[in-house]
Nucleic acid binder design. Structure first.
Lengths: 131, 131
DNA sequence: CCATAAGTTGACGTTCGCGTAAGGTGATTG
DNA sequence: CAATCACCTTACGCGAACGTCAACTTATGG
């Protein structure tokens, strides 16, 4: 259980990223692997954070924005973070995410509708389509 | 009703973008305003497309991906597009969007949960917080 | 013992999505 | 007539997010 430390190679395989990416994230202080000599060893915490980073990216958040989000997840560390301020930032971010989700839902609806039209056109041309 | 043509300045005001952005989108073939001399006049179609472009961006789609999505909305034009192929592309994109939405929903849940924890901590410190 | 693999640190290159001059044109307006 | 808009093109610049060498250091095993 103490041995959740993984090398950079293992991380790359697990998350399908390049070493360069992980080093870059470390430089940007998104990850903080421990060192064994000069080698990086990624902790369970780094793994959790990387998951969030990759997810955040898929939503179009910048690395800097993600960095702020990650700060919220460090509350467990209970450092005398400027917790209140972080909380406010997170509220804004949460609102933005909800808004984004609603828009996305709307966009999905739009696209589905368009595709129904397209399907009819294709069918009228005798083209078989999936779904 | 024939006069839905708008200048670049009007477009910028309406959508809160810079002229540079609109010219850039034209160069990337996302928009295709007509010309009056050297001046651009944007059509109703351009407006519709710009809405979609801006929305797409908020989801983290690249301009190139958006370009592909826009192709689907040209079905009305009923050019002998490679409609079937476009349809497939759109299906993939739609799946991606649904997936993205689901992940986003999950992420929102996570963040809400974290914020509940944070709220308790803050309250135990006697800090009043919103919501 | 030496090769191969897996890791390291620079440092420069690339793509995307525009920003930002710099300079030119044409239509109004005081 | 001069000036001021509002628009144009050309072109270089920039930050973000890595890719891609190059050159070097361990660690391992045949």
């Amino acid at each position: 259980m103490t041995d959740t430390l993984t090398t950079i190679g293992q991380m790359c395989a697990e998350f399908d990223v390049t070493p360069r990416t992980l080093r870059f994230y470390e430089a940007k202080e998104l990850l903080s692997p421990v060192r064994e000599g000069s080698k990086r060893l990624f902790t369970r915490r780094d793994r959790a954070r990387l998951k969030l980073i990759l997810r955040g990216k898929r939503f179009g958040f910048s690395l800097e924005e993600i960095r702020q989000l990650l700060a919220l997840y460090d509350i467990g560390d209970c450092q005398r973070t400027q917790l209140a301020k972080t909380y406010e930032v997170a509220q804004d971010r949460l609102e933005a995410m909800r808004l984004q989700r609603d828009e996305l839902t709307a966009a999905i609806g739009d696209l589905e509708q368009q595709m129904d039209v397209a399907k009819d056109i294709l069918k009228s041309r005798g083209v078989k389509v999936a779904a």
